[in-house]
């Protein structure tokens, strides 16, 4: 009975155009984050799709756009972590089939993702959200449901490791 109710709610409130709007607003960040955590394009696509399905099932109410963005990012990080645990994915980045990037950009992306794959997942995720996606430390902490000090510590360690891995000043 409960499932039917959820279905009816979905049909009423979740139109394809609403899906498209949400997708355009959040999918790129979600996909990149999932790709950085999981290391392969197929799993990243699965993670993003699963989050949208979850959204359509539960239709959470958001107070504002930041709340909405944080929900989608948090969900995709959690889903990616689930997939990582369940499939024992060894992160190795292969972007050949997924991107139409120019050659030099592709080279940078490959180097970056190769370095990210050497980091523990908890360092990788904070670095991606803060340094690459541009979230503040507080927003990153909120997305990851972690403390601000923990995020700062992980960021510092992630930066140190990336500095060595990318052989550059970060």
């Amino acid at each position: 009975m409960r499932l039917l109710d959820v279905g009816a709610k979905m049909k009423q409130q979740f139109s394809p155009s609403a899906t498209a709007l949400l997708y355009d607003r959040h999918a790129a960040q979600m996909y990149r984050t999932a790709l950085a955590v999981l290391g392969n394009t197929q799993d990243a696509e699965d993670a993003v799709q699963d989050v949208f399905i979850s959204y359509m099932r539960t239709l959470p109410q958001f107070t504002d756009e930041n709340h909405e963005k944080a929900w989608f990012l948090r969900s995709v990080v959690n889903r990616s972590r689930d997939l990582l645990r369940r499939r024992s994915i060894r992160s190795h980045f292969s972007l050949e089939e997924a991107t139409d990037l120019p050659a030099d950009t592709k080279e940078d992306v490959s180097a970056l993702f190769e370095a990210l794959s050497q980091l523990p997942e908890k360092y990788r995720t904070v670095l991606v959200l803060h340094a690459l996606e541009g979230f503040s430390v507080e927003e990153t902490a909120n997305i990851l449901n972690a403390g601000v000090s923990a995020v700062k510590m992980r960021l510092a360690r992630a930066r140190e490791k990336m500095k060595i891995l990318l052989k550059e000043e970060i």
Binding site: A27, Y31, E45, V48, D108
Partner: peptide
Amino acid sequence: RYADAYRSILPPDSLREKVLSTS
């Protein structure tokens, strides 16, 4: 340089179709 390269990554069009077909 790395941040820009990272942000140039976009999800494939097939993913958009998959998500939209789900709804």
